[in-house]
Amino acid sequence: MITTTMKPRWLMAGVLSTGMLALFTLPMAQATASDQADQATLDEVRFGVPPWPGITVKSEVASQLLEALGYDTRQRELAVSVILNALSQRDLDVYLAGWYPQERDMLAPLLEDGSILEIVDNVPSAITGIAVTDDAWQAGVRSITDLHEYADQFDSRIYGIEAGSGINDAVLNVIDDGRFGLGDWQLQESSASAMLSQVGQKIETGEWAAFIGWKPHWMNVAYDMHYLEDADDSGAAQLEGRVATVVRSDIAELDPNVARFFEQFVVGSEIQSEWVNAYSRDERRADDVASEWIAQHQDVVAEWLDGVTTQDGTPAMDAVSSQF
């Protein structure tokens, strides 16, 4: 039986800045004596899972697949800083949410001292930036430099997320500096949920909207939207990133079979956005979303499990096919 401790329905699929970590993580958890006494065996694969929907479902999918191979799994809902420390101390085994560039400064010292490893980018391409509705895109709004020509249609407004986020600050810097003709524009900061509600209403009424978007996220599935191109290296219109799989440094020594699975467990932005849509927007259980997706996408699962076996040495895909 998969143990899933994650149930909140958050809208965010990722952290948009290091400063936003406090908004989307639980209070710092202290390891108990019993936790510290846990043996570092990969008979049980221990996940560190921050409370973000994309990582919730992604960790659940990986857990269900490993369970089918005969491993026990445990998911610990923790703040990112606690997860990384636990990985370095070998109290956790894997973290599927190493967001770049937002977490670079947190990951760098642990990577440098060799206490953790990055073994693959499970989402090779993640994006944060200014997006526009399809009507605006079709009218020719393709770059941040195009916005000022259509100020009336946009009401000289960009819908933003929580104050203090990295992308908000980048847009505010552009406005404050009067660049790209946006000196008299306004960034309307609010919660992510409030912003997406406003954008959804704009789309329903056929109005234009410019707003902060990111992927993976359900908005990319639910909304017909497009990301603007940057005119320079400011990152105001679009900041490209990635999401790395981070593991304890000795994982290959402990279990090369598990290490191979995680090296091949590349999800991609589109798949994770689908998971977030089902879990966060449709409010379905993470375990149900995961098991249904596995059953319906055995071709993708077969790529993840190429050369991987069950704990008793039989082909992994045979075990998965018989259970899903």
Rank of each mutant, 00 (worst) to 15 (best):
W137G: 13
F180H: 02
V171W: 04
G140F: 08
E149H: 12
E149C: 09
A163E: 14
D146H: 15
L172R: 02
E189Q: 13
Y150I: 06
F211P: 04
Y100V: 12
G178Q: 00
A209T: 07
Y95T: 06
T128R: 09
K202H: 12
K215W: 06
G206D: 10
V132K: 08
G164L: 12
I158L: 08
Q102T: 15
I203Y: 03
E162H: 12
P101N: 06
L111T: 06
F180E: 04
E162W: 11
A126E: 06
Q186I: 10
A126V: 06
S115E: 12
D176I: 00
M106V: 07
D152L: 13
E207T: 10
S191W: 09
L107W: 12
T133Q: 07
N168A: 00
V199S: 02
D105Y: 14
A170D: 02
Q201I: 11
I116H: 06
G183Y: 04
F154I: 13
V123C: 11
L117R: 13
I203R: 12
L182E: 05
S191E: 08
Q153W: 02
I130F: 09
Q201Y: 08
F211N: 11
V171C: 01
L110G: 02
N173C: 00
M106H: 14
A131S: 12
G114V: 14
L187N: 01
Q138P: 04
I127A: 11
S197P: 01
E112S: 12
I158Y: 05
S143N: 10
L117E: 13
L111H: 03
Y150L: 12
G183N: 10
D146V: 11
A170P: 00
G164P: 08
V171I: 13
A136S: 14
S193F: 07
V123S: 07
V171A: 02
P124V: 07
G160L: 10
Y150T: 11
M195P: 05
N168T: 03
G206N: 08
L172G: 06
W208G: 04
H148A: 15
N168V: 01
A131N: 11
I144N: 05
A151K: 01
S193M: 11
N122W: 00
V120Q: 11
V174Y: 00
G160H: 07
I144Q: 05
M106N: 12
S193T: 15
E112C: 02
G166P: 07
L147N: 03
V171P: 00
A209K: 01
R104S: 13
V132Y: 04
H217Q: 08
L96I: 07
H148R: 10
W208A: 03
A170M: 04
P216N: 10
D93G: 03
Y150W: 14
I130G: 02
G166F: 01
A151L: 01
Q138W: 06
Y159D: 14
T133L: 15
W214E: 09
G164I: 08
V120N: 04
R142P: 09
D146S: 13
D176C: 00
Q186M: 13
A139Q: 15
D113R: 08
S197E: 15
G183L: 02
Y100N: 06
G213K: 05
